[in-house]
């Protein structure tokens, strides 16, 4: 039987895990009263589902529909004037949703807040480009890599992959070496679909050795003329001719034999 491979997450997994292995957690602490983060929480009132401080940065979990409002309050009332990063994590296999995060920076206080929300599959998120222009490229990248639609984005288009690319590469269902469409992308685009049989799929493994390729590889003991079609039935090991030593000087060899 073929080994079962889960289709919803084709990324590499540990081949062995100890039965008694307990995964520890990154330390989390509550927001302490009177600190800068407590004031931020106060300003956000009931928009926050849960909050914690992890490694000196506050993590706020919110509803996906509140993202614009929360980030607006953070920018205008709490001094978080820079959006450093914005992206998503794919949890489709486990929970059928994405985790989106916005990493915000307060320059004056040197504090960082991460706003996190869970977005169900197929739903769209509100763009924060009116607040932070840096989200323009970041949201486009998120759309490109995960296929998450962003509402009211000024120019939501693929940014890193080509416009006519199929699939979203950072999804867990997308294999590392690309999917079926990816392997035919260049052939289809340059020559057309009808050339698929002639050219063959793109080889993304530069170290690949093809035993059927008689143009680039030759096998010692089974050499065939350049470009011959490979045929497993006709495979015959080549018998190399052995070099025969003809003894022309019989006298000398006799002397040798005598010496032995």
């Amino acid at each position: 039987m073929r080994k079962y491979v889960p289709k919803d997450n084709v990324q590499k997994k540990a081949y062995y895990t100890d039965r008694y292995h307990v995964v520890p957690k990154v330390p989390q602490s509550e927001v302490v009263e009177g600190t800068h983060f407590a004031k931020v929480l106060e300003a956000l009132e009931n928009l926050v589902l849960s909050s914690s401080v992890q490694l000196g940065q506050m993590v706020l979990h919110i509803n996906p529909k509140d993202n614009f409002e929360v980030i607006k309050i953070l920018k205008e009332q709490c001094g978080y004037t820079q959006c450093s990063e914005q992206s998503a994590v794919d949890y489709l296999a486990k929970e059928n949703e994405f985790e989106l995060f916005w990493q915000l920076l307060n320059i004056n206080e040197a504090k960082r807040v991460r706003v996190v929300c869970r977005l169900a599959k197929g739903e769209a998120i509100e763009s924060i480009v009116p607040l932070f222009n840096s989200a323009n490229f970041a949201e486009r990248e998120m759309f490109d890599m995960f296929g998450i639609k962003v509402n009211n984005h000024p120019f939501l288009k693929r940014i890193i992959m080509p416009d006519d690319w199929e699939g979203h590469p950072l999804l867990k269902t997308y294999p590392l070496f690309g999917d079926e469409a990816a392997s035919w992308y260049e052939v289809d685009k340059i020559f057309g679909k009808e050339y698929r049989d002639i050219i063959g799929p793109e080889n993304r493994d530069p170290a690949k050795i093809d035993m059927k390729d008689t143009k680039r590889f030759s096998r010692i003991g089974y050499e065939v003329p350049f470009g011959t079609e490979y045929n497993a039935d006709k495979e015959v090991p080549i018998e190399y001719s052995e070099t025969l030593l003809v003894n022309y000087n019989k006298k000398a060899s006799k002397q040798l034999d005598e010496r032995k």
């Binding site: 540990a14 292995h21 995964v23 520890p24 957690k25 990154v26 989390q28 992890q54 490694l55 940065q57 993590v59 990063e85 990493q103 960082r112 991460r114």
Partner: peptide, 9 residues
């Protein structure tokens, strides 16, 4: 195998 969690550094 690092602990479960997230960091931004």
């Amino acid at each position: 195998r690092p602990p479960r969690g997230e960091v931004y550094v």
